[in-house]
Design a protein around this nucleic acid. Structure first.
Lengths: 259, 259
DNA sequence: CGCGATTTGTGCGCACCTTCACAAGCGCCT
DNA sequence: AGGCGCTTGTGAAGGTGCGCACAAATCGCG
């Protein structure tokens, strides 16, 4: 999705024995690790202290072979014949994802969507803390949201530095997003989650992930359209479908990351 | 827009059935079409009536070769030496995505996030109309949000059918999501956009896309972590050499992922 | 103390996606 | 009319990811 510069690909020679670390984890694997982490926390709360790849894969909604391969990439600690130690695996994944400490996040744009994101409990529960809110609208500055005061975007540099913020969320209108991105990067932010429906260009070394809500619906719309065309044409589109079970069963393939 | 059904002369070669086209568009292509569409609308508003693959690719933030291949999949109409007709391409893509008519969408869960989604202007502008709001909390039922009244989730079947809704958005807590999904499917919904951080299992034929905001941040966190590790290491020697075992000993723990 | 049941880790083939490079087509200019 | 430059469409190569299937490893039990 966003720009991932293969770039010079500095080798990053694995500093041998000390840390198992993350030299060049496949992007697809990285995208799934959070999923595993969530499932693991769930399992831990249920009292499980070990889990098989089959069980964990089930909880995370993926194939067990894929899960094993993913975990093997980070030199995982499973025990053959037994499974994975839940607590250990949680620590492992959290380390690889850089979640050993709570990360501070800045949020720019406290409009309709930004307001909701600022109060989204899911962030706090999963390793992040919204540490600063910004908006360009003077009328909004000073407003209090979930224990934070909205600050003017001109104060961005000082706050970003003072709080040591490296990750920012853009929830502004598309027209302002590129400008905001530039100011964020100038202030030292190196990772951006962009909710504005537009492409951002940023210097090399800055990561951008994009969430476009309308695009998600449009992709679903395509599949709706396709399904409608299929059922209208008994050409054999349904032939491929195995006996449709009455109950709930196979998880759908959704997902695809990105973006 | 533009009830443009004639389609492009029934495919290129095999015109067995009068099927429009999009038989089996690659998923990756489908995911990018909305991006192109957005860029095209932008271009149209800027007065452009044709655009080259290079120009459009630039606007959409992708490689031009990739764009051309994507468009070729849907039997597109570009003119060599000139480029693509912006208006025609918009119609084409909107048709393929099933956006020739505005689609009705139901939204379940009018909490923090759901409230924002209900008012999100980006949906209305891009082919969708939130047609119904539901919540399980009786205290919220009756509340008015953006011209719609929140209804109780028990009324879901009647409303879904009456409005002919096929797409739904789940913005409930994770604990309720699976149950809601089941009720949606039972009511006839065949596409779900899930914002709850959990896996949904649905019957075959139902599409689910998931947006997990915390996961997006966690992926960024990984890259932050990686970048931090890189800058912490002396850049000099690491460049280029990938853990070549040329070193005399290189104890096993290196685990040489790549090999 | 060895055997079988269980589960991980992974080699391999396959399918999909991306990118390059170039021939074919189109319009314009001379 | 003909050639020239520009742009599309696509064949082919390369890369990435996925899933099967199986050997290796570990535990529990008799």
């Amino acid at each position: 999705m966003s720009q991932h510069h293969p770039g010079p690909e500095s080798g990053t020679s694995a500093h041998a024995a000390a840390v198992p670390d993350f030299p060049d984890l496949p992007e697809a694997t990285v995208a799934r690790l959070p999923e595993y982490l969530r499932a693991l926390h769930h399992l831990a709360e249920s009292g499980h202290d070990t889990v098989s790849s089959e069980g964990l894969a089930n909880s995370a909604g993926v194939n067990s072979a894929k899960l094993r391969k993913d975990l093997s990439h980070l030199g995982s600690y499973g025990t053959r014949g037994v499974g994975y130690d839940v607590g250990l695996l949680i620590d492992q994944i959290e380390f690889v994802l850089g979640l050993t400490h709570r990360r501070a996040v800045a949020l720019v744009g406290v409009g309709n969507l930004g307001h909701a994101l600022a109060g989204y409990a899911g962030f706090a529960n999963r390793g992040f803390r919204i540490s600063a809110l910004f908006d360009a609208d003077a009328a909004r500055v000073g407003e209090r949201i979930g224990g934070l005061i909205v600050q003017h975007i001109d104060d961005l540099p000082e706050v970003i530095e003072a709080e040591g913020i490296a990750i920012a969320v853009i929830a502004t209108p598309a027209s302002a997003a590129q400008s905001v991105a530039g100011r964020l990067v100038a202030a030292g932010v190196t990772s951006i989650l962009n909710f504005a429906p537009c492409v951002l260009s940023v210097p090399e070394g800055v990561d951008v992930r994009k969430v476009d809500l309308a695009i998600e619906l449009q992709i679903l719309s395509f599949h709706e359209h396709r399904k409608a065309a299929l059922t209208a044409l008994p050409t054999g589109g349904a032939a491929g479908l195995t006996a449709l079970p009455g109950g709930l069963s196979t998880p759908s393939p959704g997902e695809a990351v990105g973006t």
